[in-house]
């Protein structure tokens, strides 16, 4: 394998709030090869969105700030680019779709305008060509009667249709990387499956690399080549998808897996990880998962090291360190 398409190195992003500094992304590193899909999972507030917004340099500043690290994209550190250079990458080489398709489209502008402006900007198309391209893209994502519906406003579309529009928008300049931040969370189950299927299909056709952010491990299982599990701003475990599901090493990942509903088994009550997601302003000094971890012990008051537990499979837990040294 050559150099990865995206290589995030020791990324640190904090928000400076009245309660103090929130280290939403704290020393996060991962790689993504061209055409591959990385799933990022974790509970609400674990820093998934902040990670992706940091890559796009769309962190609201203030209160947020990218404090350190590198985001190497095609060998270039995005964090070092000028605003103008960064704008040339956004929407063209890295595109993003967001969780809530209801609020992510501009309610005051026609779908047509919201689609054409991006190909006018990055592909230099004139109005007419941009409109043709927009209709093409809408057809590609499965909007029936696209040539007519393109002049509608977002409120005339259903949630699932709007997310299709978002996808059409994101893919209209053939980006090398698509970041999908919980693209299906706001949609109902049957629509969810359709949208995921669509992303899968387009990814294959266009060869786009995807970062798929979700708190649903089930979504990741069918889509991702690799999975990174985030907890309290850190990646606590990362592995090839099969390996993660077969041999979850970190107690948090094990908890997440146990709390997944099994379609084959009628379980009376679903397992739930005990306790609440951590208060990001008051994290314990050692392992952030310690207050909820069934295996928490004395060494856990120190930050755990990240160690390899298998081929390309890494975990940040003292249990893994000990089994390492024992083995």
């Amino acid at each position: 394998m050559g150099t990865p398409l995206l290589s995030v190195r020791n990324l640190q992003t904090s928000f400076f709030t009245r309660e103090g500094e929130v280290r939403s992304v704290d020393d996060v590193s991962f790689d993504l090869e061209a055409g591959q899909t990385l799933g990022i999972v974790g509970e609400s507030g674990s820093g998934k969105s902040v990670t992706s917004l940091s890559i796009m340099r769309l962190i609201p500043t203030p209160p947020g700030r990218i404090k350190g690290g590198q985001v190497l994209f095609g060998g270039q550190d995005l964090l070092k680019l000028s605003d103008r250079q960064m704008r040339a990458i956004r929407g063209k080489r890295i595109a993003m779709i967001f969780q809530d398709p209801m609020s992510s489209l501009n309610p005051f502008l026609r779908i047509a305008r919201q689609l054409t402006e991006i190909s006018e900007l990055h592909l230099g198309l004139d109005r007419r060509a941009a409109r043709r391209r927009a209709i093409e893209m809408l057809e590609l994502v499965g909007i029936p009667d696209a040539a007519r519906r393109i002049d509608d406003y977002p409120h005339q579309f259903s949630g699932g249709m709007r997310q299709r529009v978002m996808i059409a928008m994101a893919l209209s300049c053939d980006p090398q990387l698509l970041i999908a931040d919980e693209p299906t969370t706001a949609l109902d189950v049957t629509i969810q499956a359709q949208i995921l299927e669509l992303i899968k299909d387009l990814r294959e056709r266009l060869g786009t690399a995807v970062i798929l952010i979700t708190h649903d491990l089930g979504v990741v299982a069918g889509m991702a080549d690799r999975v990174a599990v985030m907890y309290a701003g850190k990646i606590v475990e990362s592995a090839p998808t099969d390996s993660l599901f077969a041999r979850p090493a970190h107690p948090y990942t094990q908890g997440l897996l146990r709390s997944m509903p099994d379609p084959l088994q009628e379980v009376a009550e679903l397992y739930q990880i005990p306790g609440l997601p951590p208060d990001m302003t008051r994290l314990p000094p050692g392992c952030a998962f310690a207050p909820r971890c069934p295996h928490a012990a004395e060494p856990c008051s120190q930050p755990p090291e990240t160690v390899a537990v298998g081929a390309a499979h890494r975990s940040a837990c003292w249990l893994n360190v000990r089994s390492e040294t024992r083995a």
């Binding site: 769309l58 993003m96 967001f98 992510s104 501009n106 005051f108 402006e117 900007l121 978002m166 928008m169």
Partner: peptide, 25 residues
């Protein structure tokens, strides 16, 4: 709002974000 974040994610200039996307609302 979210739709302004979308506009910025497209790589639009801040002036376009303001005039085309933000001012109306």
């Amino acid at each position: 709002s979210d739709y302004i974040r979308t506009a910025r994610a497209k790589g639009l200039r801040e002036s376009v974000v303001l005039l085309r996307h933000a001012l109306r609302g």
